Simulated assay, not measured.
Amino acid sequence: MDRFVPAWAALRAAVADLADEDFAQPSGCAGWLVRDLVCHLVIDAQDVLITLVTPADGDPTADAASYWHVSDQPPTGADPLDALTVRMAAAYGDPALLRFHLDDVGSAAGRAAELADPALRVSTQDMVLTAGDYLTAYVMEWTLHHLDLTAHLPHVPGPPATGLADTRALLERIAGAPLPESFTDTDALLVATGRRTPTERERTALGPLAAKLPMFLG
């Protein structure tokens, strides 16, 4: 819970400070402009609010690591929700409307996270998780998308160091092996999730793990 709030606050602050022209720049998500990514963040914030008020009975069926669906195939953009996100983002027109909507819904999601009982069992995507595990999974969501936001906007501050370290640790749990110590947290996340192709030196350092990467998370 302590990690969720600063990761989310940093991402929202980065979006709030974007210039209007930044919204038309490409993001780190293939096929998405920055405005499309920000629209996706609005949808994510809504999902957080919905999930935290959807209590579940029974034992958890997933944790922060198994929450993620892992594929070895990159997203194609053909997913109906991905296409809808692009159309919704374009419909905003004025970037100020996107900033306002993310601040409005995003602030509410942040407050809901602060108030949530970590032991509360919640339901989402046919899974039962504790609220603590669900919000831990979202630290990864926020951190990776913060990297996506800054991919072509080097003047925009990146994600907090704690979020990078926590996301790396969770990604290593998902991969079932540690990433090389020689990798910075940022490089480890970019390479492991297919956001950047490893150099030959990095591929050598990865060793057998290179055959399992990249992992595309959804």
Rank of each mutant, 00 (worst) to 15 (best):
L206Q: 09
Y134T: 00
E21G: 13
A30C: 02
R196I: 07
A30R: 15
A9I: 00
M1L: 01
P214E: 04
L115N: 06
C39G: 13
H40W: 13
V34D: 00
L179F: 05
L97G: 11
D103W: 06
V105R: 05
P80E: 15
V191E: 04
Q73N: 03
D2M: 05
L147W: 09
L49M: 11
R99V: 08
T85D: 08
Q125M: 03
R3N: 04
V191A: 00
R196W: 09
A131C: 08
D103I: 04
A16Y: 11
A45T: 02
Y138P: 00
L206M: 04
T186A: 11
A90N: 08
A45E: 13
D82W: 11
A78G: 01
H40T: 12
T199M: 09
L170E: 08
T162Y: 01
E181M: 07
W142A: 11
S66Q: 09
P214Q: 12
D72P: 02
G218S: 12
R3Q: 10
H155R: 15
Q73P: 00
S71Y: 03
R12Q: 10
V38F: 11
P75V: 06
V53T: 06
L18T: 08
A16E: 14
G110I: 09
L81I: 15
H152M: 06
V122H: 02
T150V: 08
S27Y: 13
Y67W: 14
A96G: 15
P26W: 08
F23T: 03
A169F: 02
L97P: 01
H101W: 13
L206Y: 04
M140P: 01
H101D: 15
P26E: 05
L189M: 10
T167D: 05
R201P: 00
D2Q: 10
L37P: 06
W32A: 07
K212I: 03
T76S: 12
D57S: 05
W8L: 04
A192R: 12
L179K: 10
P208T: 12
P159M: 07
D20M: 09
S107F: 08
D82Q: 14
G93A: 05
R3C: 01
H69N: 10
V15F: 05
G93F: 12
T197G: 02
G28D: 03
A13V: 04
A78Y: 02
A45V: 06
K212R: 15
P6D: 01
A165N: 02
A14T: 05
C39E: 15
T130K: 06
Q25R: 15
L52G: 07
A177P: 03
D59N: 06
G58L: 12
M215W: 09
V105W: 01
A112Q: 14
P6T: 03
G93W: 14
D104T: 13
V34T: 10
R3A: 14
P198H: 11
A56E: 05
D36Y: 03
A151S: 09
L11A: 12
D22S: 15
L120N: 06
V15C: 08
Y134K: 02
G106T: 04
A64Q: 08
L98T: 14
L120S: 13
M215H: 11
P80Q: 14
A113C: 09
D17L: 06
V122N: 00
D126E: 13
V105P: 01
T136K: 01
L135R: 00
G58K: 11
S182Q: 13
D47E: 13
D104K: 02
